[in-house]
């Protein structure tokens, strides 16, 4: 479905999502404080070992996530060769690569729902300024629910316009699609109220524990 998650039962899969994110954040800070090629190479090898040997992720699953920046990394390396020196270029590229692989490992071993639960938890200090963290989880879930629906609506409008002879006027379909979606939002809002979404806030601990498990 809509996920880069690779199902599995490894230690890395089972570690709590919040902990994985904390380690990733620490790694990010650590790598930017450090400045030695050995440290960067070590970090890259370590994340690869965790991803491939411990979490049993296929190489492809990691490559898919890192691929979009290959070209950029090559350009960066080239730039440093010309502008600074080999050492700085190597450190910059290895640092980014280690961080990207580590991020890819976390993403591939953590379900979207568990991540959403962490986001909800991270947002809990916002209670102080009047934001309900459970609302954030709800909006994220609603978005996942509506993506295929909006895609369907777009396809239907395109078909209808094609039937009336309008060839491929992409911009022309944006207006009816937006209006249809805005109209639907009114009903969705009513449905949320009718189903008690605006009801008195309740404890969410149980749900979070279940989702993160």
């Amino acid at each position: 479905m809509l996920s880069l998650y690779v199902p599995g039962d490894s230690v890395v899969h089972r570690v709590r999502a919040g902990l994985k994110l904390a380690v990733l954040a620490a790694l990010g800070v650590g790598l930017f404080l450090g400045d030695s090629p050995v440290l960067m190479t070590g970090a890259l090898l370590l994340t690869l070992v965790v991803g491939v040997a411990v979490a049993h992720l296929p190489w492809l699953a990691l490559a898919v996530q890192v691929r979009p920046v290959w070209l950029w990394l090559a350009l960066l390396f080239g730039f440093h060769l010309l502008a600074t020196d080999l050492r700085t270029g190597t450190v910059a590229v290895l640092r980014l690569l280690a961080l990207l692989v580590a991020a890819a490992v976390v993403t591939a071993t953590t379900r979207v729902t568990a991540m959403v639960a962490v986001i909800e938890w991270l947002a809990s200090p916002l209670r102080m300024v009047g934001v309900r963290p459970d609302r954030i989880g709800l909006v994220l879930a609603m978005t996942l629910r509506f993506i295929p629906l909006v895609a369907d609506k777009a396809a239907r409008i395109r078909e209808a316009q094609a039937a009336r002879g309008g060839s491929r006027v992409r911009l022309g379909m944006a207006v009816p699609l937006l209006i249809e979606v805005l109209r639907m939002a009114t009903t969705v809002g009513e449905a949320l109220d009718a189903r008690g979404a605006d009801d008195v806030p309740v404890r969410r601990g149980g749900r979070r524990a279940r989702l993160a498990a």
Binding site: M142, R145, M184, E190, A191, R195, D199, V200
Partner: peptide
Amino acid sequence: FVFQDPDAQIVHPTVAEDLAFGPHNQG
């Protein structure tokens, strides 16, 4: 309240999650 268009009423991505939504809001 049951609406005309179920697509506007179903707000969670999976069937079980959506069924849990109302009871959960009731605390």
